[in-house]
Write a protein that binds this DNA or RNA. Structure first.
Lengths: 347, 347
DNA sequence: ATAGCAATTTAAAACGTTTGCAATTTTGCG
DNA sequence: CGCAAAATTGCAAACGTTTTAAATTGCTAT
């Protein structure tokens, strides 16, 4: 069979109209007679005409694509939100007729160079940048280029405005502290990561701020740091905290994967969660519901965020608003069974 | 700052060469003097020249993209492999300089129409089709169009050759049966889905075949069917099997999500896994490792499969092989703690 | 010096669309 | 019926690249 793809020229020839008229008719220009527009629309539908993206992009300068750079982090590491994030983006984009380009940065290769390629090849009209680092060359590049983008996450301090959407990790960690404090906990542990991502500060600062608000000198916070992608090292770091003679009664982990490690190691050490130890995470990944006794965490609603990011980006592309668009999203507590009253036995 | 993107014309002007020469030099044509090629390469690198994708696609007919249609299944449903699958595809594509286009099919909209749009707009040089249905109009369409594609999964019977890669579910389910039989189980349950996907047959047939090979008349198999995306109905279906006076001693679920439901409901019914009931799944999703007591399952290595699919598709696009490419991948047993010897107490 | 040939470079067309401007047709009105 | 204005349609350029076919340059041998 192998029917060939039809072009505007062929469609126009069949209708005895010029390419111009057909193009305008399909675009719905008022200047084309309604009768003609209908006739063209019918013929196009009947012929299954689909405009060629490359040609359209070339002349209009708009590709109808939004780009996302996907870094390969290692042979067995998959970004745990990727599916949700991509689904949300797709959902947000499709309602405006846009699609997503996923440009992969091979393992060990610079994410920035892939980003530049996406931007400068004209493949995309805008990009989404995730996982903001303390010093993030991607944002600087995009700003310099004046290219539309939305960041998922924030810089800590920035000398320029940019569009971002972030989950309010500071608020969540404050809420976690307050809840645990009210349950009688006074000795806290924080498991954080060594990678220079901004969210580790935002969350830790939120915890510290809530602590400061209480002004209770008996409150104590121990912090332990693990590299993000090294499971071995993570287990060691967690055990460094768990095996101490005076271990915290409540551990807050920067995100669920760390919290799950805490729960696993706690179980291995014969500790009962939440009787001996309360654990709270962040993100609400799927496994958190299953890991016994059920991890208390905060739902970051990645999909919904991604959807909003898509909306923001499309607005920016279309309207070029003067002021940056920013959204701070509250994450909601998912109270499962990994937190409880502080154990009595401690001094 | 906002430096503009440089074009071939500008690059050529700066070098005092024609566009043609510069284009050929960058493409590495032998006919261009080596000295010129080097000079051009240096200037291009220095100027940060990136060829415009649209222009290149328009004239060459190759976009350098591979398409994947992402169906939105519902407000809270995310394809659990999507992240892994997309990562694998990206990994496979990037090594050949290709990228991925994710075209979303909005909730309730036809996946086929999105696929047609991707194909006929010339956005992609080939597509990946997942989740093959018993009667799959997408494959028929792609065959008719003669468009390069690779299916993840297979048709049951097909009157035409096509490229596919599939995990050998039949083998895995046979292996599951054999293992359970050797542990003394004689009464089996299968939890399957009502949606018309081919893999449900392949897996069930694999189980049935292994059963037949034993030729043991005392073996019994009960099958229960649940709709794929309706959690409520799934729970009911599982309980229909669990609450029977003579329930199976071993339940095989079509995939992990179903198996996890089985384990949850078993726990709720006061059954101990694996003492009272063995459960085996398929896929090895992240949660399976955490759900107590740890789900025994088969690792489908989605990421690796996706990577091979990308390789296959790029080969097909480049070489147009006469015979279809097909790969059947063995999944490996991940023996956790949800299976064990058959309980003695039964008649 | 020059014909002949290889090595190197270039002009121009093409890909399929959008769009500024001009041309044509239709309509309204005296 | 004639003319201006409005409505409708079309011509041709442009987008940035690849590629065919042709032109130019440099070299070798006479």
């Amino acid at each position: 069979m192998t029917t060939r793809v039809i072009t505007l020229k062929e469609l126009a020839a069949g209708l005895d109209l010029s390419i111009t008229t057909v193009s305008r008719a399909l675009a719905g220009h008022e200047q084309i007679a309604l009768k003609t527009r209908e006739r063209v629309a019918r013929a196009a539908r009947q012929a299954g005409y689909v405009p060629n993206t490359a040609a359209r992009t070339l002349v209009s300068g708009r590709s109808g694509f939004v780009g996302l750079v996907l870094p390969i982090r290692g042979p067995n590491l998959v970004d745990s939100f990727l599916g949700e994030f991509v689904t949300g983006l797709g959902e947000g984009l499709v309602s405006h007729g846009a699609d997503l380009i996923l440009a992969t940065a091979a393992f060990g290769h610079s994410e920035l160079s892939v980003l530049r390629h996406v931007v400068e090849s004209g493949r995309a009209d805008g990009v989404v940048v995730t996982r903001i680092a303390e010093v993030d060359e991607r944002l600087a590049y995009l700003r310099d280029r004046g290219f539309p983008f939305v960041a998922h996450g924030r810089l800590l301090h920035s000398d320029f405005g940019y569009n971002w959407l972030d989950t309010d990790g500071a608020h969540a960690f404050g809420e976690a502290f307050d809840m645990l404090y009210d349950l009688g906990h006074r000795h806290f542990g924080l498991v954080t990561i060594s990678e220079p991502m901004t969210f580790r500060h935002l969350r830790q600062d939120g915890l510290a701020a809530a602590m400061a608000r209480r002004g209770d000198p008996s409150v104590r916070l121990d912090v332990v740091t693990a590299p993000r992608f090294d499971h071995e090292a993570r287990v060691q770091a967690v055990n460094r905290m768990l095996q101490r003679s005076d271990r915290p009664t409540a551990i807050v982990a920067l995100f669920d994967e760390l919290a799950l490690t805490v729960m696993e190691e706690a179980a291995r050490a014969g500790l009962s969660v939440p009787r001996d130890l309360s654990v709270i995470g962040f993100d609400n990944i799927a496994a958190s519901a299953y890991a016994p006794p059920g991890l208390t965490t905060f739902d970051a609603s990645i999909r919904q965020c991604a959807r909003e990011i898509a909306d923001m980006l499309l607005t920016i592309i279309a309207d070029k608003p003067a002021a940056p668009l920013t959204r701070l999203i509250r994450s909601t507590l998912v109270a499962r069974a990994s937190h409880g009253p502080a154990p009595k036995t401690k001094s």
